[in-house]
């Protein structure tokens, strides 16, 4: 979608409305302008991410997208989430993605087969979905405004209070989920030969985590780092 089409779609909404507004669409507030401009940058960066042929560039443009979104959050007065977004997404997720690109020996520079043969069907589906979604959303929230005056809706204090009063149980469950993901990632990323040797010996479920690590240590020496960072916790990679 081109920028012109995006702008046209956005302005198509207000021109179809006939009733008078208290908020005056024809004179948007500064926040709205800022939001629109950052949104354009974000959207453009996202488009580049999914269309560029250079894989590492795609990851970097993703950084731009995620950063743009963090700014949007700030504009929406959701400060805590904005910083969490920067920390987690830009800080670790993208780093992980870059690691992944490196470990799978992604080509640096242009790779001619970055897009599969499915792209025309994908384009059709995406455009249709976009059209449907935007139309429905605009039609539904034509007369809805967010009130951004007053204290920040997403300040750290407010978020923390809400989180640790109302959302404790999901919070704890989430930490268990993260633990499971950690263990799973470690298990999945073991070397194939060592895993096959362990699997043929006995039922893997009977063995404890430490035995497995010790066995791998006593097996062939490795030089490759297979460890994967997880939320700042480093795992010993050398065996």
């Amino acid at each position: 979608m081109t920028l012109a089409a995006t702008a046209g779609l956005l302005t198509a909404g207000p021109t179809t409305r006939a009733a008078a507004e208290t908020h005056g669409f024809l004179s948007p507030t500064g926040v709205e302008i800022a939001f629109l401009l950052v949104g354009l940058v974000t959207f453009g960066a996202a488009l580049v991410t999914v269309t560029t042929r250079q894989l590492v560039h795609a990851a970097l443009w993703l950084v731009v997208t995620l950063g743009g979104l963090a700014v949007e959050y700030l504009l929406l007065t959701a400060e805590f989430i904005a910083w969490v977004q920067v920390l987690i997404y830009v800080g670790s997720v993208v780093v992980l993605l870059l690691f992944g690109l490196m470990l799978t020996r992604a080509p640096i520079g242009r790779s001619p087969d970055a897009d599969s043969g499915n792209r025309w069907g994908a384009l059709t589906v995406a455009v249709a979905a976009a059209a449907a979604l935007v139309w429905v959303v605009v039609d539904a929230f034509r007369t809805t405004w967010i009130d951004l005056d007053g204290p920040a809706a997403g300040s750290t204090e407010a978020t923390g209070a809400s989180l640790f009063q109302n959302w404790v149980l999901p919070f704890e469950a989430l930490s268990v989920l993260l633990l499971a993901a950690l263990v799973g990632a470690i298990v999945l990323s073991r070397k194939a030969k060592a895993a096959a040797a362990i699997a043929t010996e006995s039922t893997p479920a009977a063995r404890s985590e430490e035995d497995r690590i010790e066995k791998d240590r006593s097996d062939k020496g490795r030089s490759e780092k297979d460890g994967i960072e997880k939320d700042g916790i480093e795992k010993e990679g050398t065996r």
Binding site: S116, N118, G121, A122, T124, V125, A128, A129, A132, V136
Partner: peptide, 18 residues
């Protein structure tokens, strides 16, 4: 091809949603 499957799935979903 997983992407083909998902494309078909989503196309159907879009049609249904509309």
């Amino acid at each position: 091809n997983v992407q083909t499957y998902v494309s078909a799935l989503l196309a159907g979903t879009v049609v249904l949603a509309v």
